[in-house]
């Protein structure tokens, strides 16, 4: 087994979901509110991982665009839960040394007096290890 396939399988395994349940209806992408912002879409994440491909996903900006709104999770007819897969790929990227997507230096410029703490906490949880 090549490295890409092994990594894809590892990521799928800790995602806790099975992309092979997918019947390729595309409803995850259809219901995704942030489809237009993504270079690779939820259904492509499912399809790539189901066939053991992950390289392109690791480079994709989609992993920072997913809102974790769980619309795809709720509406997938096959219980695939695509957001879990996207999150698993993101974890495997930001888990690498020096691969943080969000650095604390960037925070002050974005602060405004009303911004709730939860936004900052959440952003660090998602984009930094």
């Amino acid at each position: 087994m090549n490295n890409e396939k092994a990594l894809a399988e590892e990521v799928v395994s800790f995602s806790g979901t099975n992309p092979r349940n997918c019947m390729k209806c595309g409803k995850c992408s259809a219901t995704c509110p942030t489809f237009e912002e993504m270079d690779l879409h939820p259904h492509e994440f499912v399809s790539y991982l189901a066939s053991g491909r992950i390289e392109k996903l690791l480079q994709s900006k989609t992993i920072y665009k997913c809102l974790s709104c769980f619309a795809c999770v709720e509406r997938c007819p096959r219980g695939v839960e695509p957001s879990r897969l996207i999150e698993a790929v993101r974890d495997s990227v930001v888990g690498q040394k020096g691969a943080d997507y969000l650095s604390p230096d960037r925070i002050p410029e974005r602060l405004d007096p009303d911004l709730p703490q939860q936004a900052i906490t959440a952003a660090f949880r998602k984009y930094k290890k």
């Binding site: 912002e37 920072y64 809102l67 619309a71 936004a119 900052i120």
Partner: peptide
């Protein structure tokens, strides 16, 4: 539907 919440900081 989502308000875009988690993108508030990044986008």
């Amino acid at each position: 539907e989502c308000c875009g919440g988690y993108q508030t900081i990044t986008d």
